[in-house]
Design a protein around this nucleic acid. Structure first.
Lengths: 114, 114
DNA sequence: CCATTATATTCGTGCACTTTTATATTCGTG
DNA sequence: CACGAATATAAAAGTGCACGAATATAATGG
């Protein structure tokens, strides 16, 4: 009679099943990771914190936060790609804002936990 | 008369002041970033999702999730260093668990947002 | 149409992080 | 004590990513 790999585990088969079912799917996991990674960077955190107060254009973010313009532009692109910010164009100026205000809630929760 | 850099901004001085005051301090920002980065990795997310179901030892995590033992060990160390998990030793076995169940709440919130 | 302002993009570089391979450590058992 | 199991650590290899310099694009004003 053969011995399955699961028989070597300390946890029971039922728990293992639950663990595997609870695990986020490949796509969901990837979305979550991208989302969290976006919040796991000092520069992006600064930008988000600023946008939590007020919509701002790239130049204001750059000068107001003391960051290079290209750096801000880069990170805004990243934040856009994971859907954290949006912008509206007005002439030659781009006004950026948070796409979902719940991000502020999230940031507060994390600040408590961290 | 001199022109200060702030005079070039579109946002008013008052808003700028608020933005700068709201910005998390260096240390807080770093803690948040570390914390979020820890959640921004597929392997660590798997481990945390598993621990959300049940305390588990390294070997069970390794086999149950299909990951190398050393990889699990490394990532558990990372998760420990940001205070996301803890463990209790029992003989030669280390049982890992979530340090704060609110992490599950956080994960659910993020899953909604992402 | 030229200059200027605001923003984006391309590209190169350096650094940090993940993973793996190999080895060490710790603990239980015969 | 010798051995095997469970875990950790060290070293090496591969990868990704943030940042900045230079350049491009787009819009406005003269």
């Amino acid at each position: 009679m053969e011995i399955r790999i699961e028989d070597k585990l300390l946890i029971d088969a039922r728990t293992l099943k639950t663990v595997r079912e609870f695990a986020p799917s490949r796509e969901v996991s990837e979305r979550i990771c991208d989302f969290m990674s976006a919040l796991g960077d000092g520069t992006r955190l600064k930008i988000l914190s600023a946008l939590a107060i007020s919509d701002m254009c790239v130049n204001d973010l750059s000068i107001g936060l003391g960051l290079n313009q290209t750096t801000v532009s880069h990170q805004l692109k990243n934040l856009r790609s994971v859907g954290l910010v949006k912008y509206r164009r007005q002439g030659k100026i781009n006004f950026y804002s948070l796409r979902d205000k719940r991000v502020v809630t999230l940031l507060n929760l994390v600040t408590d936990l961290a």
